[in-house]
Amino acid sequence: MKKFSQIFVISYCFSFFLFQTIFAGTVVDKFKIEGIISIASTKALQSELLKKLDIKILDLNLKKTDSGWPVLRIEYDPDIISKNKIETVIGEIEDPAGHKYKVHKGPLIANANLIDEENQAMTILGDMTMDLKQVNNPTVDFDSSIKRGKDVFIKNCAKCHGLNGNGYGVVAHGFATWPRQLWAWYKADSAADSYLYWIIENGKSDMPPWGLVLSEDVRWDLINYIKTIKKPEEN
């Protein structure tokens, strides 16, 4: 038994050493990519990168990212290639239409704050005040409602609020206001229903009035699903 333990420990140490030798120093970095404008763009970028650099491309996530930008995950050895070198090479590659790619830098939302003149104008000519009414959630089967709500969310809401509800959806940059982070309503009780119902139905600021195209039942499915969205760190 003692001998068996010794063999096991030696084997384990050897395997660990071998693993460390083969994968020593490799790191995985994420690069936010500007310039992916077609399906051909994705292929061109990846094939050109592999031709020019000794790296491993793990994946290219176009939309389901925390920032809204496409993310390329690359595994490389920093002793051989620097991160700057990878960024430079990405910037030198052209897509099939002749446009160069670029690694996106800067803040997630680059839009400037409203200037004083805009704030004053919005006070005079702005959105209506919220006329909240008491509503009662009619849902009986919450599990199936949440499941339906998730599908509705992915189809209609995720593009602005992000798939994980962080507000950095793919199109979130195109508005004056930043879409709300939805985990504010995680496990919210029925007191939140009036607000959620009103805002989804009527919209406000850059939020569209979904009451025009989504039925009342569907809106309740959405509300039930929103209350299940956790802040990612808590997942």
């Binding site: 939309k63 199109v171 940059h173």
Partner: peptide
């Protein structure tokens, strides 16, 4: 300019962010 491109139409949402807006 929206900064969006339709790079993949197999899943929702169909657009991806391509350029700054």
């Amino acid at each position: 300019f929206t900064g969006l491109a339709m790079a993949d139409d197999t899943t929702e949402p169909v657009f991806n962010r391509a350029k700054p807006v």
